[in-house]
Protein backbone atom coordinates (compact mmCIF):
# COMPACT_ATOMS: atom_id res chain seq x y z
CA UNK A 1 0.00 0.00 0.00
CA UNK A 2 2.80 2.40 0.86
CA UNK A 3 4.18 1.77 -2.57
CA UNK A 4 0.91 2.97 -4.09
CA UNK A 5 0.62 5.98 -1.88
CA UNK A 6 4.05 7.30 -2.68
CA UNK A 7 3.83 6.75 -6.39
CA UNK A 8 4.72 9.90 -8.34
CA UNK A 9 1.97 10.24 -10.93
CA UNK A 10 3.60 13.26 -12.48
CA UNK A 11 6.28 11.02 -13.95
CA UNK A 12 5.20 9.70 -17.37
CA UNK A 13 7.38 6.65 -16.95
CA UNK A 14 5.64 5.70 -13.72
CA UNK A 15 2.26 6.00 -15.41
CA UNK A 16 3.34 4.06 -18.45
CA UNK A 17 4.72 1.35 -16.23
CA UNK A 18 1.49 1.34 -14.24
CA UNK A 19 -0.78 0.77 -17.19
CA UNK A 20 1.55 -1.53 -19.04
CA UNK A 21 0.68 -4.37 -16.70
CA UNK A 22 -3.04 -3.98 -17.29
CA UNK A 23 -4.89 -6.35 -19.55
CA UNK A 24 -6.16 -4.54 -22.66
CA UNK A 25 -9.68 -5.86 -22.52
CA UNK A 26 -13.04 -4.39 -21.47
CA UNK A 27 -13.43 -4.49 -17.71
CA UNK A 28 -9.78 -5.17 -17.03
CA UNK A 29 -8.59 -5.08 -13.42
CA UNK A 30 -6.32 -2.16 -12.45
CA UNK A 31 -3.49 -2.25 -9.95
CA UNK A 32 -5.07 0.42 -7.71
CA UNK A 33 -8.59 1.30 -8.85
CA UNK A 34 -10.22 4.39 -7.31
CA UNK A 35 -13.61 3.69 -8.89
CA UNK A 36 -15.08 0.24 -9.42
CA UNK A 37 -18.39 -0.13 -11.22
CA UNK A 38 -20.49 -3.29 -11.50
CA UNK A 39 -23.57 -4.01 -13.60
CA UNK A 40 -24.79 -0.47 -14.17
CA UNK A 41 -27.82 -0.63 -16.46
CA UNK A 42 -30.16 2.15 -17.55
CA UNK A 43 -33.14 1.80 -19.87
CA UNK A 44 -35.06 4.65 -21.47
CA UNK A 45 -38.35 3.32 -22.68
CA UNK A 46 -37.41 0.23 -24.64
CA UNK A 47 -33.86 1.37 -25.33
CA UNK A 48 -30.89 0.35 -23.25
CA UNK A 49 -28.76 3.44 -22.88
CA UNK A 50 -26.11 1.98 -20.60
CA UNK A 51 -25.18 -1.61 -19.78
CA UNK A 52 -21.75 -1.74 -18.18
CA UNK A 53 -20.77 -5.05 -16.58
CA UNK A 54 -17.59 -4.06 -14.91
CA UNK A 55 -15.25 -1.12 -15.10
CA UNK A 56 -12.31 -0.01 -13.02
CA UNK A 57 -10.70 3.40 -13.11
CA UNK A 58 -7.05 3.60 -12.10
CA UNK A 59 -6.08 6.13 -9.45
CA UNK A 60 -3.80 9.00 -10.30
CA UNK A 61 -3.96 8.91 -14.07
CA UNK A 62 -6.08 10.50 -16.78
CA UNK A 63 -8.66 8.10 -18.14
CA UNK A 64 -10.63 9.07 -21.22
CA UNK A 65 -14.10 7.73 -21.90
CA UNK A 66 -14.79 7.89 -25.60
CA UNK A 67 -17.33 6.53 -28.01
CA UNK A 68 -19.56 7.59 -30.88
CA UNK A 69 -22.64 9.72 -30.32
CA UNK A 70 -25.32 7.92 -28.36
CA UNK A 71 -22.83 5.48 -26.85
CA UNK A 72 -24.20 6.30 -23.39
CA UNK A 73 -21.16 8.12 -22.05
CA UNK A 74 -23.03 11.01 -20.49
CA UNK A 75 -25.75 8.73 -19.14
CA UNK A 76 -23.03 6.59 -17.60
CA UNK A 77 -21.55 9.72 -16.02
CA UNK A 78 -24.96 10.69 -14.68
CA UNK A 79 -25.46 7.24 -13.20
CA UNK A 80 -22.09 7.07 -11.50
CA UNK A 81 -22.40 10.59 -10.08
CA UNK A 82 -25.91 10.04 -8.76
CA UNK A 83 -27.66 12.37 -11.20
CA UNK A 84 -29.61 9.46 -12.63
CA UNK A 85 -30.81 6.16 -11.17
CA UNK A 86 -29.83 2.80 -12.61
CA UNK A 87 -32.78 0.75 -13.84
CA UNK A 88 -31.77 -2.18 -11.72
CA UNK A 89 -29.54 -2.90 -8.76
CA UNK A 90 -26.06 -1.69 -9.59
CA UNK A 91 -22.93 -1.50 -7.50
CA UNK A 92 -20.11 0.94 -7.56
CA UNK A 93 -17.58 1.94 -5.02
CA UNK A 94 -15.32 4.92 -4.87
CA UNK A 95 -12.10 4.96 -2.91
CA UNK A 96 -13.29 1.96 -0.94
CA UNK A 97 -16.73 3.37 -0.12
CA UNK A 98 -19.89 1.87 -1.58
CA UNK A 99 -21.93 4.50 -3.41
CA UNK A 100 -24.90 2.48 -4.69
CA UNK A 101 -28.12 4.47 -4.59
CA UNK A 102 -26.51 7.53 -3.08
CA UNK A 103 -27.55 11.02 -4.05
CA UNK A 104 -25.55 13.30 -6.29
CA UNK A 105 -24.49 15.37 -3.31
CA UNK A 106 -23.14 12.43 -1.32
CA UNK A 107 -21.19 11.25 -4.34
CA UNK A 108 -19.62 14.69 -4.49
CA UNK A 109 -18.98 14.63 -0.76
CA UNK A 110 -17.17 11.32 -1.16
CA UNK A 111 -14.69 13.14 -3.40
CA UNK A 112 -15.92 12.40 -6.91
CA UNK A 113 -16.85 15.75 -8.41
CA UNK A 114 -18.09 16.31 -11.92
CA UNK A 115 -18.59 19.06 -14.46
CA UNK A 116 -21.29 19.22 -17.09
CA UNK A 117 -21.38 19.02 -20.84
CA UNK A 118 -23.53 22.15 -20.94
CA UNK A 119 -21.62 24.29 -18.50
CA UNK A 120 -23.48 24.93 -15.30
CA UNK A 121 -21.87 28.13 -14.19
CA UNK A 122 -24.23 30.14 -11.97
CA UNK A 123 -24.62 32.98 -14.42
CA UNK A 124 -26.37 35.49 -12.24
CA UNK A 125 -23.80 35.23 -9.48
CA UNK A 126 -20.32 36.62 -9.49
CA UNK A 127 -17.31 34.52 -10.40
CA UNK A 128 -16.19 34.75 -6.78
CA UNK A 129 -19.55 33.57 -5.43
CA UNK A 130 -19.39 30.66 -7.84
CA UNK A 131 -16.04 29.71 -6.42
CA UNK A 132 -17.05 30.19 -2.79
CA UNK A 133 -19.97 27.83 -3.29
CA UNK A 134 -17.51 25.10 -4.15
CA UNK A 135 -15.93 25.05 -0.71
CA UNK A 136 -17.12 22.21 1.48
CA UNK A 137 -17.99 22.11 5.16
CA UNK A 138 -18.72 25.80 5.49
CA UNK A 139 -20.15 26.53 8.91
CA UNK A 140 -21.88 29.60 7.47
CA UNK A 141 -24.02 27.35 5.32
CA UNK A 142 -25.72 26.18 8.48
CA UNK A 143 -28.96 28.09 8.86
CA UNK A 144 -28.49 28.95 12.53
CA UNK A 145 -24.79 29.78 12.41
CA UNK A 146 -25.28 31.88 9.28
CA UNK A 147 -26.97 34.55 11.40
CA UNK A 148 -23.83 35.21 13.42
CA UNK A 149 -21.07 36.56 11.27
CA UNK A 150 -18.21 35.91 13.72
CA UNK A 151 -18.98 32.20 13.47
CA UNK A 152 -18.13 32.06 9.79
CA UNK A 153 -16.21 35.17 8.97
CA UNK A 154 -12.77 33.67 9.52
CA UNK A 155 -13.49 30.60 7.44
CA UNK A 156 -14.95 32.82 4.75
CA UNK A 157 -11.65 34.70 4.49
CA UNK A 158 -9.68 31.46 4.16
CA UNK A 159 -11.98 30.17 1.46
CA UNK A 160 -11.74 33.47 -0.35
CA UNK A 161 -7.95 33.23 -0.37
CA UNK A 162 -8.05 29.73 -1.77
CA UNK A 163 -10.58 30.78 -4.39
CA UNK A 164 -8.30 33.63 -5.43
CA UNK A 165 -5.36 31.27 -5.82
CA UNK A 166 -7.38 28.96 -8.04
CA UNK A 167 -8.81 31.83 -10.07
CA UNK A 168 -5.33 33.15 -10.56
CA UNK A 169 -4.16 29.79 -11.81
CA UNK A 170 -7.07 29.62 -14.25
CA UNK A 171 -6.45 33.24 -15.31
CA UNK A 172 -9.84 34.39 -14.07
CA UNK A 173 -8.76 36.50 -11.13
CA UNK A 174 -9.34 39.76 -12.96
CA UNK A 175 -12.93 38.71 -13.50
CA UNK A 176 -13.70 37.72 -9.94
CA UNK A 177 -16.36 40.40 -9.41
CA UNK A 178 -18.00 39.93 -12.80
CA UNK A 179 -21.19 37.98 -13.18
CA UNK A 180 -20.39 34.51 -14.47
CA UNK A 181 -22.86 35.04 -17.28
CA UNK A 182 -20.60 37.68 -18.77
CA UNK A 183 -17.73 35.21 -19.31
CA UNK A 184 -17.03 33.49 -22.61
CA UNK A 185 -17.99 29.86 -23.04
CA UNK A 186 -14.43 28.69 -22.50
CA UNK A 187 -13.95 30.84 -19.43
CA UNK A 188 -17.11 29.38 -17.99
CA UNK A 189 -15.71 25.88 -18.54
CA UNK A 190 -12.60 26.96 -16.68
CA UNK A 191 -14.69 28.48 -13.92
CA UNK A 192 -16.69 25.29 -13.58
CA UNK A 193 -13.51 23.29 -13.32
CA UNK A 194 -12.01 25.70 -10.80
CA UNK A 195 -15.21 25.57 -8.77
CA UNK A 196 -15.12 21.79 -8.77
CA UNK A 197 -11.53 21.99 -7.48
CA UNK A 198 -12.71 24.12 -4.57
CA UNK A 199 -14.27 20.95 -3.18
CA UNK A 200 -10.78 19.36 -3.07
CA UNK A 201 -11.91 16.31 -5.05
CA UNK A 202 -10.05 13.01 -5.15
CA UNK A 203 -11.30 12.44 -8.64
CA UNK A 204 -12.67 14.94 -11.10
CA UNK A 205 -15.03 13.88 -13.84
CA UNK A 206 -15.17 16.17 -16.84
CA UNK A 207 -18.09 15.79 -19.23
CA UNK A 208 -16.85 16.94 -22.63
CA UNK A 209 -14.60 19.69 -21.31
CA UNK A 210 -13.81 20.78 -24.85
CA UNK A 211 -17.38 20.98 -26.16
CA UNK A 212 -18.20 24.48 -27.27
CA UNK A 213 -14.82 25.81 -26.24
CA UNK A 214 -12.98 28.18 -28.48
CA UNK A 215 -10.08 26.12 -29.90
CA UNK A 216 -7.77 28.79 -28.57
CA UNK A 217 -8.55 27.79 -25.03
CA UNK A 218 -8.13 24.09 -25.66
CA UNK A 219 -4.41 24.11 -25.07
CA UNK A 220 -4.71 25.85 -21.74
CA UNK A 221 -7.53 23.55 -20.69
CA UNK A 222 -5.38 20.55 -21.59
CA UNK A 223 -2.58 22.03 -19.54
CA UNK A 224 -4.83 22.47 -16.55
CA UNK A 225 -6.06 18.91 -16.76
CA UNK A 226 -2.54 17.57 -16.95
CA UNK A 227 -1.38 19.61 -14.02
CA UNK A 228 -4.33 18.34 -11.98
CA UNK A 229 -3.14 14.84 -12.63
CA UNK A 230 0.40 15.78 -11.77
CA UNK A 231 -0.81 17.04 -8.42
CA UNK A 232 -2.43 13.70 -7.69
CA UNK A 233 -6.06 14.14 -8.71
CA UNK A 234 -7.53 11.29 -10.71
CA UNK A 235 -9.20 12.50 -13.91
CA UNK A 236 -11.94 10.79 -15.88
CA UNK A 237 -13.26 12.63 -18.86
CA UNK A 238 -15.74 12.12 -21.65
CA UNK A 239 -14.61 13.48 -24.96
CA UNK A 240 -15.43 13.48 -28.64
CA UNK A 241 -12.26 15.20 -29.62
CA UNK A 242 -9.78 12.47 -30.44
CA UNK A 243 -6.82 14.82 -30.56
CA UNK A 244 -7.29 15.70 -26.98
CA UNK A 245 -7.71 12.07 -26.02
CA UNK A 246 -4.48 11.14 -27.73
CA UNK A 247 -2.55 13.98 -26.25
CA UNK A 248 -3.32 13.71 -22.62
CA UNK A 249 -4.92 10.43 -21.66
CA UNK A 250 -3.01 7.62 -20.04
CA UNK A 251 -5.78 5.14 -20.53
CA UNK A 252 -8.80 5.07 -22.82
CA UNK A 253 -12.13 3.34 -22.32
CA UNK A 254 -14.33 3.01 -25.38
CA UNK A 255 -18.10 2.75 -25.13
CA UNK A 256 -20.53 1.93 -27.90
CA UNK A 257 -24.25 1.27 -27.64
CA UNK A 258 -24.10 1.47 -23.89
CA UNK A 259 -21.33 -1.11 -23.40
CA UNK A 260 -17.62 -0.90 -22.82
CA UNK A 261 -16.12 -2.40 -25.98
CA UNK A 262 -12.42 -1.76 -25.51
CA UNK A 263 -9.83 -0.47 -23.08
CA UNK A 264 -6.18 0.34 -23.42
CA UNK A 265 -3.63 3.10 -23.99
CA UNK A 266 -4.75 5.56 -26.67
CA UNK A 267 -2.66 4.17 -29.52
CA UNK A 268 -3.63 0.58 -29.06
CA UNK A 269 -7.32 1.38 -28.61
CA UNK A 270 -7.49 3.43 -31.76
CA UNK A 271 -6.22 0.62 -33.85
CA UNK A 272 -8.64 -1.84 -32.25
CA UNK A 273 -10.97 -3.22 -34.89
CA UNK A 274 -14.04 -3.16 -32.63
CA UNK A 275 -13.47 0.53 -31.98
CA UNK A 276 -13.02 1.38 -35.62
CA UNK A 277 -16.16 -0.56 -36.47
CA UNK A 278 -18.12 1.22 -33.76
CA UNK A 279 -17.04 4.61 -35.01
CA UNK A 280 -17.45 3.75 -38.67
CA UNK A 281 -20.90 2.43 -37.90
CA UNK A 282 -21.78 5.74 -36.39
CA UNK A 283 -19.83 8.20 -38.51
CA UNK A 284 -18.07 7.26 -41.70
CA UNK A 285 -16.13 10.48 -41.73
CA UNK A 286 -15.05 10.25 -38.11
CA UNK A 287 -11.60 11.61 -37.59
CA UNK A 288 -9.77 9.29 -35.24
CA UNK A 289 -7.32 11.87 -34.12
CA UNK A 290 -4.82 12.00 -36.93
CA UNK A 291 -2.11 14.38 -35.82
CA UNK A 292 -1.51 15.56 -39.34
CA UNK A 293 -4.75 17.44 -39.22
CA UNK A 294 -3.49 19.52 -36.37
CA UNK A 295 -0.83 21.10 -38.48
CA UNK A 296 -0.56 24.15 -40.67
CA UNK A 297 -3.95 25.85 -41.04
CA UNK A 298 -5.44 24.45 -37.89
CA UNK A 299 -2.50 25.48 -35.77
CA UNK A 300 -2.44 28.94 -37.27
CA UNK A 301 -6.14 29.36 -36.67
CA UNK A 302 -5.68 28.36 -33.08
CA UNK A 303 -2.84 30.76 -32.58
CA UNK A 304 -4.94 33.62 -33.96
CA UNK A 305 -7.76 32.83 -31.64
CA UNK A 306 -5.49 32.55 -28.65
CA UNK A 307 -4.25 36.05 -29.42
CA UNK A 308 -7.78 37.35 -29.71
CA UNK A 309 -8.90 35.67 -26.51
CA UNK A 310 -6.00 37.10 -24.59
CA UNK A 311 -6.70 40.56 -25.92
CA UNK A 312 -10.27 40.18 -24.70
CA UNK A 313 -9.08 38.90 -21.37
CA UNK A 314 -7.04 42.02 -20.81
CA UNK A 315 -9.83 44.38 -21.82
Amino acid sequence: MSDLATRDYADPAVRAQLVSEVDRAPGAAKPDPILVVDSVVRHFGGMTAVDVDHLEVQRGIITALIGPNGAGKTTFFNLVTGFDRPSQGAHWSFDGKTLDKTSASSVAQAGMVRTFQLTKSLNRMTVMDNMMLGATEQSGENLVKSLFKPLWHGQEREIEERAKELLDRFKLLAKKDDYAGSLSGGQRKLLEMARALMTRPKMIMLDEPMAGVNPALTQSLLGHIQSLRDEGTTVLFVEHDMHMVRHISDWVVVMAEGRVIAEGPADSVMSDQAVIDAYLGAHHDMDLGDDALLEEDAVKEMADEVAREEAEGKA
Binding site: F83, S103, A108, F116, L122, M125, D129, L133, T136, A196
Partner: peptide
Amino acid sequence: RGVREDEDAIRSLG
Protein backbone atom coordinates in the same frame (compact mmCIF):
# COMPACT_ATOMS: atom_id res chain seq x y z
CA ARG B 1 -28.98 31.90 -4.61
CA GLY B 2 -26.91 29.07 -5.99
CA VAL B 3 -29.89 26.75 -5.75
CA ARG B 4 -32.00 29.36 -7.48
CA GLU B 5 -29.50 29.52 -10.32
CA ASP B 6 -28.88 25.84 -10.91
CA GLU B 7 -29.74 23.04 -8.55
CA ASP B 8 -27.70 20.45 -10.37
CA ALA B 9 -24.58 22.54 -10.19
CA ILE B 10 -25.01 22.90 -6.43
CA ARG B 11 -25.68 19.20 -6.09
CA SER B 12 -22.50 18.43 -8.00
CA LEU B 13 -20.60 20.40 -5.37
CA GLY B 14 -21.80 18.07 -2.64
